[in-house]
Amino acid sequence: MNNTLRRSMIWPLLLLTLTCFVPSHAELVVVVGAGSTVSTLSKEQLIDLYLRRLKDFPGSNDTATPLIYNSGPLRSEFLQNVLGRSDAQVKAIWARYTFTGKAQAPRTVENPEEVKQLLAAHPKMIGYLNRGDVDASVKVVLVP
């Protein structure tokens, strides 16, 4: 192998090596408490609940209280890949409801344990987790 060929292979190999150490993309799932009457949701219904176009869970009179992570990659992934909106857009939409007293913005949470505790205690709440954090206290209603 001459020097030029060797050099040209260094960068692809380095990138390949680095890729092996990056954790695989975690799967986000939408969950409600195990005691909730909701069994399934479409992505459109979920978006409507989080953007407040829908107030109640479909087919019920239960007003949904959405949970959203305060920060971190799961928040960004949920906003961008599931809701299809930026953080600022979602804030702007919710400001319209908050500052007229029409509704409260989604409740912020800090970690998966808090999500599970709240969902277990409040059947009208809805949140999201990494699939690896799902346990018997919650049920998956959507894999976006």
Partner: peptide
């Protein structure tokens, strides 16, 4: 969940943005 009544001082929804007239964000 469909009805919300308010007594007191609240928004007069004259136009589309009336309720957030001052919330420029």
């Amino acid at each position: 969940s469909s009805v919300h009544m308010k007594v007191g001082r609240a928004v007069a929804p004259v136009f589309a943005l009336s309720d957030v007239n001052d919330v420029h964000y």
